[in-house]
Design a protein around this nucleic acid. Sequence first.
DNA 1: ATGACGATTTACT
DNA 2: GTAAATCGTCATA
Length: 210
Amino acid sequence: MRRARRWKREDYARPSVELAKALLGTTLVRVLDDGTRLAGRIVETEAYLGVEDRAAHSYGGRRTPRNEPMYGKPGTSYIYFTYGMHHCFNIVCGEVDEPVAVLLRGIEPTEGIEVMRRLRRGASKKRQTAQIADRLIGSGPARLCQALRLSRNENMIDMTRSKHLFVEGPHEVRPAERIVATPRIGIGYAGEWVRKPLRFLLEGNPHVSR
DNA sequence: ATGACGATTTACT
DNA sequence: GTAAATCGTCATA
């Protein structure tokens, strides 16, 4: 087994389409304050291309308090609150002042699975479901945030230095898991950008959303 | 100050 | 398949 290698600045400093594909098969690690280590294999991502991309928060060069992290160093976390109840987690890439990022949409839990299941269940105020199926723990941008206890507290973290949130290699993609591209989800307002194949996933992996 | 809306999830018909 | 939940953000005034 190859030794785990934490991603450095240069690993993040590339175009969002490249990063979105490169992240597939790597491990996202989240260490809670009490030291509990949670981890999952990234199986679904979406690339956001910045100023030209109508679906991106930075479309047209918009720069607001919310999307400020997108203008930071590659490897910075960008976590925002939406729909009055959910969080989405992105990793900033490209160059400083180039507002591009990759949205993480699905992980296959590998470490701390039962803790993640409990975090997911605890996130719902409604009646506690008997048990959350494995494939529903990390399949979806907001579910992933619940499972890893990610919220605005983890916004704007430098993932090349943080002890609580980072990406690890090596890249593990099985031969049967080909990378496929589809249109992005939930961006029906983005005109011609709706159709562009900027969502990437490992074909056949059950921990992909929908 | 106001209002429209969202890079979603869940429950229900 | 359809709709409710739920509130921070941002454009407009």
